[in-house]
């Protein structure tokens, strides 16, 4: 589903270049789940951005759903993202001017996979039934994150990328959101890559890798 092969990434800064990722190689099979742990600044988010095609590596290759990302132009990468990927962020990134139901259906509409029955099912599973007409700012943090998860899963992606999906939530809410996330991932049978520094989040996943100063430790692709 997702392959990183000897990927390097360096950012230029006024203080000189910073090597964020060094020789990263990993493989994620369809339906598999993987936790990526590491300290702040270890390169987790950069790896996620590269996986989503939001950025490109300096060296090495990244393959997503059989397509080499470097060979694709920006519109093609956007298409791949739209149709194959779901993304969940720590800050939710909901569209504040759209209602709950419109936010939920947004990516499915963009991918032309809007399925009314599936959306209704998701709404029910996310516990957002009855809140369809509300705006994101009228929801609690947990509700907002659930909505973000629902939006990512609405087009039934092949791979779900989650960046600290519970990082902005209290412990109880985080536990409920995680449970829901895993349950829905299982239901849709999509692969899952979660970036986190919470062992509780990493524990239920199939595999766990650690990123330290840009290098993967205990890497067992």
């Amino acid at each position: 589903m997702l392959e990183f092969d000897q990927v390097h990434k360096t950012y230029a800064t006024p203080q000189g270049p910073i090597r964020v990722l060094k020789d990263v190689t990993l493989r994620l099979a369809p339906g598999q789940s993987l936790a990526l742990m590491g300290e702040s600044g270890s390169g987790k988010s950069t790896l996620l951005h590269l996986a989503a095609g939001l950025d490109l590596p300096d060296q090495g290759t990244i393959t997503l759903a059989g397509e080499g990302l470097a060979a694709l132009a920006e519109p093609a990468r956007a298409k791949l993202r739209r149709e194959q990927l779901g993304l969940v962020f720590q800050q939710f990134h909901l569209v504040p001017s759209l209602t709950v139901i419109d936010n939920l259906r947004l990516q499915a509409r963009l991918a032309r996979r809007d399925d009314t029955a599936w959306t209704a099912h998701l709404l029910e599973r996310l516990g957002l039934h009855g809140l369809e007409k509300r705006y994101p700012e009228q929801l609690s943090g947990g509700q907002q994150q659930r909505l973000a998860i629902g939006r990512a899963l609405a087009p039934r992606p092949a791979l779900l990328l989650a960046d600290e999906p519970t990082g902005n939530l209290d412990e109880t809410t985080a536990s409920h959101v995680l449970e829901l996330l895993l349950s829905l991932v299982h239901e849709t049978q999509c692969a899952l890559l979660v970036v986190t520094h919470s062992p509780q989040v990493a524990a239920p996943l199939d595999r766990c890798l650690r990123l330290s100063h840009g290098s993967l430790l205990d890497a067992t692709p």
Partner: peptide, 16 residues
Amino acid sequence: LGMLRTLRVLGVSGRT
């Protein structure tokens, strides 16, 4: 700006 970023992340190309 936040909306634009979200849309881009959700697969809308810059050109679109």
